[in-house]
Simulated assay, not measured.
Amino acid sequence: MMFQFNLIVGLVYSVVVQAAIKDDIIHMYKNKFNGDGTYYGPTDGGTCQYDPPSKPPAGLNPIIRNFVALNKPQFLGSYSCGMCFKVNSNGQGLGTNPIKGHFVVFVADLCPECKTGSLDFAINGDGRWKIEIQAVQCPVGNTKLEYKFQGSNSYYIKLQIRNARIPAVAVKIKQNGSWKAMSHSADGFWILSDQKPVPTHNIDVQITAANGETVHDTIPELVNAKVLHGSQKVQFALDGNLPTA
């Protein structure tokens, strides 16, 4: 009885957290936020672990001007990894390298000390500049969702969902014919760890975006540290209710 009670409490808590994260993400698309733009220099990897040379195609789109570290409040424990933001700035601030213009950036890292509305740019520069940001759907073009396993085996799955037009807020994986919800990690992965194995080939996943759209895909094989493409070649559809890059 106690096990069942704890299981129910855990499921309810997971649903509540997922709903809150979904609302927080959509809020970033629907509103503009004022903050500071700063610089922390070129870096590889970052909290979101988009290690070179396997950068997501959306981040390499010519529309993207810079990779950035997002402020901690809006990073949402890494749910915001891979999001895109439109930046507006008139160069107001202090320093020698003003941030000016209207452009789009890609979230690849966390700025722990940054406040809401602020970005730390992964390029060399100097100063603190006033910026305005708003989330936009990433410019994925015709590219599809990508996947990357880390330290995984049939009993422990750690999976990165990459190159999403809109960030995922829930992921399930098929295990022994049933869908099992995966938990989200602080470094932008999805984890399943229990006593029942997951297939190492033709791995079925169900992915839900922040706007509620759900897609299904099949990952051909469980291979660690390699960017993989699903056999069903899916991507979240362009949402007419959310701004675009």
Rank of each mutant, 00 (worst) to 15 (best):
M1W: 12
V9P: 00
V9T: 09
V16H: 09
V16L: 15
I21T: 12
D23S: 14
D24R: 15
I25Q: 02
Y29R: 10
Y29L: 06
K30L: 13
K30H: 10
N34H: 15
D36I: 14
G41A: 07
C48W: 00
D51M: 08
S54Q: 13
K55H: 15
P56F: 04
I63E: 12
V68I: 15
F75L: 03
L76V: 06
G77A: 06
S78P: 06
S78R: 00
N88L: 14
G91H: 01
I99Y: 05
K100L: 11
G101T: 06
F103C: 04
V104C: 05
V105S: 01
I123V: 15
D126V: 10
I131R: 03
I133F: 05
Q134V: 08
A135V: 02
N142M: 10
L145T: 01
Y147L: 02
K148T: 05
Q150N: 12
N153D: 15
Y155H: 15
Q160N: 09
R162S: 05
R165I: 08
I166M: 05
I166L: 00
V171N: 01
V171R: 00
K174S: 05
A181N: 12
M182K: 01
F189C: 05
L192Q: 02
S193K: 14
Q195W: 13
K196A: 15
I207D: 00
A210R: 01
E213W: 07
E213Q: 15
V215T: 07
H216N: 14
E221P: 06
L222R: 04
V223R: 09
N224S: 06
L228V: 03
G230A: 04
K233G: 08
G240I: 08
L242P: 00
